[in-house]
Design a protein around this nucleic acid. Structure first.
Lengths: 130, 130
DNA sequence: CTACTTGCAAAATATTTGCGTTATT
DNA sequence: AATAACGCAAATATTTTGCAAGTAG
């Protein structure tokens, strides 16, 4: 059975306290502030377990590395191609679309991953690219 | 400037001839049937170039490795969690949704990646899991 | 000829795993 | 006491890159 550990708690706390959809490596550096000798292997092992138990989401937004999300409800993301930030998007039309898809095409949809890419409002306003 | 090469042509031909959204490694093994001494580095280099020139899409559907698609129009995918196949989905509602998003929220959306996961029609019918 | 492309091998990244030890239940 | 979780280091897997040679334009 699952056991508690300071490491797992801290990982969850870090994830809960950010909206940045962080990578394993970023989580590692955050957790190390509290548990300096934590190992990266432990981060990965816990993230995998948490995902398997449905407590977090693993996102495949870019090809560099996976990102993790404390918000386990399927939702949409917007990735700015300039500042590389990933924002949550609440898109009510999306759930309607899925309902339609399963009704009309017989697909049993258990989750979805939607990522829009483009320029966020902030970066659109910047005249000179960085 | 860009130059032609047998390797690049073959990669494109292979991609054009499949709907399986293959990985670099699968493409490699297909290309090798025609050019036995092609190198994996060449595959990756060409795939990167082709993507940069907008001739193919790079998909981030699962965490194992990237997949590539000859169909460069943004479109939706369905990934069966059982047989692991990835199918194209034409979802007209999707383009409407994007139009709405840019109009209502000021986002400049240049592309999107939509992946639904679940059981495909075929796998739903199978009584005994493999 | 110029310089893009290739094959090869080594390097860089991201993630997983084996093992002996620690800690939770 | 049993065994899940840990830290560490080595192993995998995927993708990139440096370099000398080949080739398209």
């Amino acid at each position: 059975m699952e056991r508690k550990s300071q490491q797992k708690n801290t990982i969850l706390k870090v994830l809960k306290g950010t909206t940045s959809h962080p990578t394993a490596d970023w989580i590692y550096s955050e957790v190390r502030k509290e548990i300096p000798n934590v190992s990266l292997g432990t981060i990965y092992r816990n993230l995998r377990q948490l995902k398997a138990r449905g407590k977090i989401l693993k996102l495949h937004i870019d090809d560099v590395s996976s990102r993790f999300d404390y918000n386990t409800k399927s939702h949409c993301h917007f990735r700015c191609t300039k500042c590389k930030q990933v924002f949550d998007l609440i898109v009510p039309e999306c759930s309607k679309m899925i309902e339609q898809l399963s009704r009309q095409r017989g697909l049993q949809i258990s989750s979805y991953m939607v990522t829009f890419s483009g320029l966020c409002v902030k970066c659109q306003k910047q005249k000179y690219p960085n």
